[in-house]
Amino acid sequence: MSEELFEVEEGIPPNPVEEFLRMDRMPHIWCPGCGIGTTVNCFVRALDSSGLDLDKVAVVSGIGCTGRVAGYLRLDSFHTTHGRAIPFATGLKLANPELKVIVYSGDGDLTAIGGNHFIHAARRNVDMTVILLNNGIYGMTGGQVAPTTPISAIASTAPYGNFEENFNLPYMAESCGAVYVARWTSFHVRHVTKSIKEALAKKGFSFIEIVNPCPTLYSRRNKIGDGLDQMIYYRDNSEIRNGADTKTVGMDFQGKIVVGKFVDRERPTYDSAMMKYYQKKLGEDFVPSEEMRNSIHAEN
């Protein structure tokens, strides 16, 4: 790709999201019609309006198309191993609770190979925001079936269509203990932005599922059009039901998508629970780490 493509013409103000991106890494790898970039735009705008000190923000991704998000953000950013963004983020957060830690990854990464870590981080209420892009398949490896593939959808390893029940992710997140659970599609850019901003302000394990098209390997194989057709499908078939019972928000192949903010509640975070518990049990013998002490002071 020639560099001239990205030369800024004089007099044209730069795109406001550019300062948040590693422009020296553009162009990105995502396909035309994919919504990952759209969500990154939402994320950056949410971050911008959040008032957070960007030097204290870290983004951790796993492997896959969405796993590449960390690499394009001009923040401290980690591209970890497949499925392990959450336990990496857990270590990072507990080492330095002053950080705002965001996990940004895909459905296969976070709920198949990384499913065990997802449920335990939610149970512990580790203070992190998990942004999960759900395209219903493994995109980067060529469109294989995933725990999120709807029944009857065709995937490269389900050539006759999928017959396995798929995860209802908001229900899973809520039942495991997440304090904030929302679902949107990459059509809902304003809702996504608002939701990310809310999640970033939330203490504890916050979870946002963003339903996202994979025109190259899902839509084409399933003969449901291109990226634009999926946007139209999202627009026409999404139903906003804030506060919906997450048991009822499972997704079918090209069926109705229930979106909205489903859960917003308070639970003690892992690090604050640890601090309080040890303070009570050990009294003056308890020596918290310097970072942990600072983060509690900052809260009070």
Partner: peptide, 23 residues
């Protein structure tokens, strides 16, 4: 002043420590 966490498995343990190192 240390943090010990019993993780859900060894895979998680062996990457959590690396997050902590970068922290």
């Amino acid at each position: 002043g240390g943090v010990f966490i019993q993780m859900e498995d060894e895979i998680a343990s062996s990457i959590a420590i690396q997050g902590a190192v970068w922290g």
